[in-house]
Nucleic acid binder design. Sequence first.
DNA 1: CCTTGACTCTCCCCCTACGGGAAACGCTAT
DNA 2: ATAGCGTTTCCCGTAGGGGGAGAGTCAAGG
Lengths: 274, 274
Amino acid sequence: MFKIGDFSRLSRVSVKALRYYDELGLLKPMMIDRWTGYRYYSAEQLPRLNRILAFKELGLSLEQIAQLLDENPSVEYLRGMLRLKQAELQQRLQAEQARLALVEARLNYLEQEGTMPEYEVVLKEAPTQLVAVVRETIPNWEQVHATFNRIFDEATSYVKEHGGQVNGLPFDRWLDLEMPESNMHVEAAVPIQAAIPESDRVKVVEMEGATNMASVIHHGSFDGLSNAYNALLHWIDANGYRVKGHNREVYLQYERTGAPVNNVTELQFPVEKV
Amino acid sequence: MFKIGDFSRLSRVSVKALRYYDELGLLKPMMIDRWTGYRYYSAEQLPRLNRILAFKELGLSLEQIAQLLDENPSVEYLRGMLRLKQAELQQRLQAEQARLALVEARLNYLEQEGTMPEYEVVLKEAPTQLVAVVRETIPNWEQVHATFNRIFDEATSYVKEHGGQVNGLPFDRWLDLEMPESNMHVEAAVPIQAAIPESDRVKVVEMEGATNMASVIHHGSFDGLSNAYNALLHWIDANGYRVKGHNREVYLQYERTGAPVNNVTELQFPVEKV
DNA sequence: CCTTGACTCTCCCCCTACGGGAAACGCTAT
DNA sequence: ATAGCGTTTCCCGTAGGGGGAGAGTCAAGG
């Protein structure tokens, strides 16, 4: 019979850990002195402790280990548990590798550009939402701004007139897969809370979200948007994603009368891996 | 200006997280209502939040991120930090891979044997310790038990007679690299607290430890030791280690008059990777 | 003007697997 | 008897929030 310190030295497990295992019921001392509370361990408990350590190295939690040790589970159950752990470890491994790749990409960028990137790309989930939407074809680049102003007004006032409630930030979508110079097909969408009747011009649809939305935030005049687009598309390519649908421009902050320097716009591309 | 809930939906960061970032000073709201305490965020804070998320994906702690965002560090500092993180990630990656390999080995064993292994092998560190040691040559297998009893007695009583204090559990070492059938060279060692004079038979040495000691605990009569040895040597081989010195047998529990079923013995091999 | 339901606030406890430390008590050797 | 460890319980801390309680706020409908 060993006192906790001796047992700790024997097993190379800290006294604190032994007490913790006792508390969890994972490894109770052979005997506890009823007067002093001293814990006394026996050498025969070392195999159990070693099993605990071995399972711990496999990455199991102490709670799981307690189950395994006390309930003497069937081989199938054990196998299931290990397979689960295996899958989890593989996932974590991939995550770590991805993280490492990100860090390496950062380092490369840092070496080449001598500074950190201006735009941070983030992957988000976009929920499906009900929107009122107006489509339009824009003949050329000069008309883009005016057209969007007009069709957003159209959508917004239509929603108001029909008693709808605006429920989120307005955004547009570019429906052409290639970027043409003329006759661009676009949509202006306004999220609404509940369905309202449609019209010829204004449609009401559930616009479906995306699980992976690569997004970047641009701050300032729309003139600089192309840099943001470049950064975003480069990121998508460099990180092994592929564009999977129509891109959006979300107007996080935009006042027609305000200085364009205060605009805040979010560019989003739905993407998928590889 | 958005209330925290709207800002949370915009950024897909939970309200709890936003409040936590506020508390840490990582992302303070644009404005806080002095009467109600309501937090109000502006869209212009989204780039900062995105930077936070991006750094978080790199695996940096929030504290490090706060530094990076507020102190606008030099490129060299950034590079250093990233390199550090890179090294850490590579280490973690290796650890995860090793864990995964362990789990796979377990699964294989489970499939082949239909049961969990009887012996759990654990890697430990062995400290250097002062011991009184007696060497002997054992002519054949029949003499092993009696010889050890005799030389352990010799060492122990010598220590007592010279006023030494026993400081740990007795162990033996097998000095032959191959296992011969006859004339086996062995040592019986008794840890002592402080140096005592030597004799012709009993030497006093600092027996140096090992950083990696593969060990297994055998419970019961010495007859079953060979199974434990097999398991241990197989583990060493299967996990890419190599024996690096003399193996020990530590007598965790042994009473000469007791039933051998109560014996507890620890087998140790110092090992090194690959 | 009142109500109602949805938000928001702060505060507290919870999670893992212990580590650090305080205050009080126990053991053992001189 | 005392000195010096060893051991006990209790409490706090970790990183990054999640869950929930209880109280106060906001906006829209009646």
